[in-house]
Write a protein that binds this DNA or RNA. Structure first.
Length: 748
DNA sequence: TAGGTAACGAGAGCGTAATC
DNA sequence: GATTACGCTCTCGTTACCTA
């Protein structure tokens, strides 16, 4: 087809011709597009359009369109200029196109909470934690001597202690136990036919059943029983762990627990802190250490574990985790226990100093975290009771804490990115407040609210005084140039907003605290921290971490098992609904983490301090800025400006080292980041509660995360209906019967 | 001109570093 | 310890260029 013939077609059908500079390929492409339009209605111009809900349509300039279905509705809001008829045409077109391009292979619901899983190859997460009450777990012995014959090897390992059975005898007996009709293990059958000696767990268990005095347990990588047989009188106890298409032998210490609990005891074998044969290493040299216990200056041992697997070809099992961090494991060859312990040497020297000065037992070195040292200071100053004086939250208030997070006030007052990424105005000045959290704790005059489960959200009358607790502001508030989006804030902060012009009638709800903690408790403890030497920067680390820890809302604990077998990984996925899999090169890391909400704690302390920080920042703005000042940004406790107030410049600033806690000084380090306050968006309380998020989306699979009652089942039904409407083949599947029943589907 | 490949760029995800 | 922003890296899709 030549240019001339194409131009003829265009002139005849569409009333125009192309310029000679347009290539033949481009003309063909255009023809395809126009033919497509003639057959299917108008095509969108290249670009991306937002439609209602999460539905997204993307057209490319080669005439193809791709779609993501997240919502049933498909009304366009962009681009402008489309009239109803065009919208209707596009709408119809989308429906048609979706039939052509959308493929929903299998919508697999993994459990009752509707959790679409997408397993991707990605590196292990770097994880954090320094809470390390060291625990030890048994090493699983590898007794394999012959390739592919671990069943025989394991049985012989246990039998040799009690009987004179020969290997040849055992193999003969095992061979007779192979189920040739039903056994699905074809490899095993072939092995037997070829007179090889590889046998499956099933065969082993059938063999055990023929004996009157042998008890056998086989456990999975997480230590739970896969298969077991208990003899009437046990003379031989076979216990082994299956992983990597291989069997590992369990030690005697695990057997007793295994027979009573149907699982092995992974967390109970502890040893005392302060173990003499211990070493502290960096992550680079930890594997060279010869000590029995190795503390590693790293928050997560994942990389060490991978190094161990690479060098030894053995996999430690299991690996203890906390907050999804691999914190402890035992070296499979050397038996050394590795414990993640960041800043070990710094914390140790602080504790040693403190114990020498105070003789207070809580300061005795026990691998404490900074946060624990802070708590010890509180106990040292006020008695232990203050640590136990906790808030207990109602479910409602716990939700508020989860939804309305508190962080320092960060904002870039200039829209766009011109002054970000290292490019800064040359005359920008940064003023910072030294030791912000510390000064807040020292200077606070408002009592800290302490909640009980009986404190619920109540309506607040327009003329009532605001009691101590947390209040809800139903419209955004401004403090000078700082914008605070609608949400829940401590009462003292809301009062400050009102004093600075916020409309009191917008404060509509209150969660009143039933008791309070006097400010002096923390003031005294912080003074103590300052007066007792804790090394360079020690006080700051202790106070900041301590305040952070008082904001803790969930506990996360878990286990990680590593396997090189995809079959084992999938089997475990089937077995444990809460399992996530990370693939690291050819290894599968199976993570089981359990998040437990902490319904008691001290969260209001942290939020209180953060809000005090907001007020200090507002006061700092008033102090430093006048009508000539241009505010560039805010950063928790600092402000970036051009042309600060003249008298402030004349007065000058003391260097940071000479400043007292809470004093303002000029900061050398300058940077600028954050959103413009106009871009801060708050979501009303009533709406936020009902929101759910689509975490991963794509044509083939995606994952929906949301709490109970957030509408996951509804979404699934919508999707199902949508797919049916499009004549797609779709099944609702789940791993377990209960889960399948919940969604009206079938088991896999 | 067709087919293949390198280069490029946008976007997303994740890890790191920094704040207190 | 909680939170945030930045930037690196990977992926995917498009474009530019080279060769037969």
């Amino acid at each position: 087809m030549t240019k001339a013939s194409l131009n003829k077609i265009f002139r005849d059908r569409y009333g125009f011709v192309f310029d000679s500079s347009v290539t033949l390929a481009a003309m063909k492409k255009e023809l395809t597009k126009y033919e497509h339009m003639a057959a299917n209605g108008p095509l969108l111009a290249a670009g991306e359009y937002n439609v209602s809900g999460d539905f997204k349509a993307i057209t490319t300039n080669n005439g193809y369109s791709f779609f993501k279905i997240n919502d049933k509705k498909m009304t366009f809001s962009e681009p402008t200029g489309l009239n109803d008829a065009k919208l209707k045409a596009i709408d119809d077109f989308l429906y048609k196109q979706k039939r052509n391009y959308v493929q929903v292979d299998v919508a697999a619901a993994r459990n009752a909470n509707i959790h679409f899983l997408k397993i991707e190859k990605r590196d292990l997460r770097q994880i954090k934690n320094r809470d390390a009450n060291a625990k030890e777990y048994d090493l699983f012995k590898d007794v394999s001597m012959n390739e592919g014959q671990c069943v025989v090897d394991v049985i012989m390992y246990f039998m040799q202690k009690h009987t004179n059975m020969t290997r040849a005898q055992l193999v003969e007996e095992l061979k007779s136990c192979v189920d040739r009709d039903e056994d699905s293990d074809i490899t095993e059958l072939l092995n037997v036919i070829n007179n090889d000696k590889g046998y499956s767990i099933n065969t082993m268990m059938r063999w055990v059943a023929t004996k009157s005095d042998i008890t056998a347990y086989v456990i999975d990588p997480f230590g739970n029983t896969i298969s077991y047989h208990v003899a009437k009188t046990t003379r031989v106890f076979i216990a082994c762990l299956m992983n990597n298409e291989h069997l590992y032998v369990l030690g005697d210490s695990q057997k007793k627990y295994l027979s009573s609990q149907k699982k092995i005891q992974m967390n109970e074998l502890t040893f005392k802190e302060g173990f003499e044969d211990a070493d502290f290493c960096t992550v680079q040299n930890c594997l060279n250490s010869t000590k029995k216990v190795v503390y590693v200056d790293v928050n997560c041992l994942s990389h060490v574990i991978n190094e161990v697997i690479q060098t030894t070809n053995m996999i430690p099992c299991p690996i203890l985790t906390h907050n999804n961090l691999a914190i402890k494991f035992r070296h499979p060859k050397t038996n050394q226990v590795f414990i993640a312990s960041q800043d070990y040497d710094i914390r140790k020297s602080i504790c040693d100093d403190l114990f020498a000065q105070t003789k207070y037992s809580e300061f005795k070195w026990n691998n404490q975290t900074y946060a624990q040292i802070f708590d010890s200071f509180l106990a040292y100053t006020n008695g232990k009771k203050i640590i136990e004086f906790k808030s207990y939250y109602s479910k409602e208030f716990y939700d508020i804490l989860q939804i309305y997070l508190f962080g320092g006030y960060n904002a870039c007052m200039i829209k766009g990115t011109e002054w970000k990424n290292g490019k800064l105005p040359p005359n920008m000045r940064t003023f910072d407040r030294r030791g912000c959290y510390t000064s807040c704790l020292l200077n606070n005059l408002d009592p800290y609210p302490v909640f009980s489960v009986h404190d619920h959200v109540e309506r607040l009358d327009a003329d009532a005084t605001i009691p101590i607790g947390w209040a809800y502001i139903s419209k955004d508030a401004m403090l000078g140039h700082m914008k605070f989006v609608l949400g829940w804030y401590p009462s003292f902060f809301v009062k400050y907003l009102i004093e600075n012009g916020y409309d009191r009638t917008n404060v509509t709800l209150i969660n009143k605290s039933s008791s309070v903690l006097p400010p002096k408790f923390f003031k005294k403890a912080v003074k103590n921290i300052q007066s007792i030497a804790v090394g360079t920067g020690g006080a700051k680390r202790i106070v900041n971490s301590g305040v952070g820890a008082w904001g803790k809302r969930v506990n996360k604990t878990g286990l990680t098992a590593v396997t090189d077998s995809e079959d084992v990984a999938l089997a475990m996925l089937n077995e444990y609904p809460d399992l996530t899999i990370d693939q690291y090169s050819d290894l599968f890391h199976l993570n089981r983490s359990k998040t437990t909400p902490i319904m008691s704690g001290h969260v209001p302390l942290r939020a209180h301090i953060v809000c005090m920080g907001h007020i200090l920042l507002h006061k700092m703005t008033q102090e430093i800025c006048d009508e000539n000042t241009i505010i560039l940004g805010y950063k928790t406790d600092s402000i970036q400006v051009i042309n600060p107030r003249k008298e402030w410049v004349l007065k000058g600033c003391k260097p940071k080292s000479e400043c007292a806690i809470g004093e303002i000084h000029e900061e050398e380090n300058k940077n600028l980041y954050g959103l413009h306050p106009d871009e801060f968006v708050g979501i009303p309380y009533e709406h936020k509660k009902r929101e759910f998020t689509v975490v991963e989306s794509g044509l083939k699979s995606f994952k929906v995360d949301a709490g109970a009652g957030y509408g996951k089942s509804f979404l699934l039904l919508m999707l199902y209906g949508e797919a049916k409407l499009l004549n797609l083949k779709v099944e609702k599947l789940a791993w377990t019967k209960n889960a399948a029943n919940n969604i009206g589907g079938q088991t896999l």
